[in-house]
């Protein structure tokens, strides 16, 4: 009905949406690469390979390499628990896991400061044993685990409750043990949702700014992640350098979007 001839209203709405998307989404993307490359490819590469930026890239990747697998495994455990069993406090558990994502990243950082910092709950104990957590890469990892805690579970819970338990019960009745059932029946069913959860977790871990800026101490060449390095370069008036660093994270964001829409297309068949 609407395919053959477009009404004026339809044309107006589509045009409006496209203009908005170009102004708000496409132009910013173009600006990042145009500014990163505005002094030429040589300068761009030099900016990326600058030791502090390179170290920030390394620290960011390292954090993601630890945080993403941990939160995927924990997310799968949590999803198994709340979708396969009914128990008291189940709903509360689902709400608690959502808590980190609903608070300001700054608050997430503050919360960790009051656990591990000098003024914090464990501060005196850590000091007595000469241990330092705050302002080290460990603090960055912990706070990143915290802010991305719900991401994997959020993808897995709806899928697993929708899939039901027939397949798994069948496997068990055919004599599979628990691990065989998980490995050969559950995992293939949820693998795409796990990949999707990993992609979203990774994007957030690599881009986290507020929480990390509170706990990292932002020491150049030591505890600076890429988002902090961007801020530092910008404050140093090194705009091209800031955009060069930003372009690496933007590439990851674009890859995230491509993977996400590919996975969704696959999921919808």
């Amino acid at each position: 009905m609407t395919m053959a001839k477009r009404s004026p209203g339809e044309i107006t709405l589509i045009t409006l949406a496209i203009i908005l998307a170009i102004l708000v989404l496409v132009v910013p993307l173009a600006l990042i690469f145009s500014f990163a490359l505005r002094e030429g490819l040589g300068i761009y590469l030099a900016n990326i390979l600058e030791p502090n930026t390179l170290h920030a890239i390394w620290l960011t990747v390292l954090t993601a390499l630890i945080v993403v697998p941990v939160n995927i495994v924990v997310g799968a455990c949590l999803a198994w628990l709340v979708t396969r069993f009914r128990f008291r406090g189940r709903q509360l558990l689902i709400s608690i896991i959502e808590l980190p994502a609903s608070m300001s990243p700054i608050v997430a950082g503050v919360v960790y400061l009051f656990l591990y910092g000098g003024q914090g709950l464990l501060g005196p104990l850590l000091q007595a044993n000469n241990l330092q957590v705050m302002f080290t890469p460990l603090a960055i990892v912990l706070v990143s685990l915290f802010v991305t805690a719900p991401f994997a579970a959020r993808e897995l819970i709806p899928l697993m409750s929708q899939q039901g338990t027939e397949d798994e019960e069948a496997a068990l009745s055919l004599g599979a043990n628990g691990w065989q059932m998980f490995w050969f029946v559950t995992l293939p069913n949820i693998s795409w949702a796990m990949v999707y959860g990993a992609v979203l977790t990774n994007a957030r871990v690599m881009g986290e700014f507020g929480a990390v800026s509170v706990v990292s101490g932002a020491i150049r060449g030591q505890t600076n992640t890429l988002p902090l390095q961007i801020n530092l370069l910008f404050n140093d008036f090194n705009v091209t350098g800031a955009f060069a660093a930003a372009s690496t994270l933007t590439l990851i964001a674009v890859v995230t979007l491509v993977l996400k829409s590919a996975l969704e297309a696959r999921h919808h068949g």
């Binding site: 949406a17 910013p28 986290e208 930003a246 964001a253």
Partner: peptide, 24 residues
């Protein structure tokens, strides 16, 4: 493409978003 682009603000780190906006 438009459908995929809508998620850009979630995928793009907030520091990059800030840097872009202040420059624009």
């Amino acid at each position: 493409v438009l459908d995929a682009l809508v998620d850009l603000p979630f995928a793009l780190p907030t520091a990059v978003a800030g840097l872009v906006l202040v420059t624009l």
